[in-house]
Amino acid sequence: MSEETLLSMENINVHFNTRRGVVKAVRDLSLYINKGETLALVGESGCGKSVTAHTINQLIPMPPGVIESGSVIFQGRDLLQCTQREVQDLRGTQISMIFQEPMTSLNPVFKIGDQLADVFMAHQDMKKKEALAKAVELLKLVKIPSPEKRAYDYPHQLSGGMRQRVMIAMALASPDSGLMIADEPTTALDVTIQAQILDLLNDLKDKVNMSLLLITHDMGVVAEMADRVVVMYAGRKVEEGTVYQIFDNPSHPYTLGLLNSLPSNDKYKNSTRLEAIPGNVPDLLSLGEGCPFANRCNWSSDVCNKSFPGKTELAEGHSIWCHNATKVIAEGTKTNG
């Protein structure tokens, strides 16, 4: 890669100790994000995408969570070796996060202008007046109409879309926002609002030169936003590539199945049946050493239940983790019209 890497995670293993047993939420995960890039982490519920994000800014509750092994290198520093204090500083300044439900991450008893100003005062040693002016500036940047007035509103006086804008403003409050982690940022919003927020994120990314780690289950959002995509299933990375490689040439049986499950897929223009993936997402408690997708996979063979496959590189930057890669590629692309 010629571009500069902002963050890289190597061999991350995270598990949770529950009363029913050990939940292996993330297994042997490695990924990287380049400067200025949008990486989409996509998968269904329980695939470990949010846990991965929380590993980066160390928001995993411990216990019951345990980061068994691995490293998270951010701008040359291993975050897993840093002290709580150092990570906290980083969280406010260079790694920011926005969540699905903005209402729960805003303090309901403070005006939004004050909450934004607090971020400046905490991390940049500003006077209250100066900080408030900066806050209004940020509200303008995230395209909130009449920001001077809105700064004096409480969170409940804003609509869901506006609140998500405030959250984004808050994430941008740092001088050099290196990485923004957006965990299902538009899932709770209506489509017309979602389109506006996604637009805004794309705009801002260019303006402030940040990288975006986008966590989502929505392939539509991925197609609109991502530069590169990592597909996860039951805690494992199963496919990785550029957004064009993933959508034009999906190669892992799970990615194929996921795209085929979408009713918007062109092949269903005249059909009344979807090609669904049979079965359900497995229980993370009862996962063996094999490929977690094996029991839902059309191509699975004995070896799939025994060990997790190694990497098969299909093109530069495009890899899948599948025992039967050659067979799947030969047959899979045929069915994917």
């Binding site: 079965g279 359900n280 497995p282 229980d283 029991n295």
Partner: peptide, 12 residues
């Protein structure tokens, strides 16, 4: 299609 794949183990 076997729909019963992945039925979680009987919880308490």
């Amino acid at each position: 299609m076997n729909e019963n794949i992945g039925v979680p183990e009987l919880e308490e």
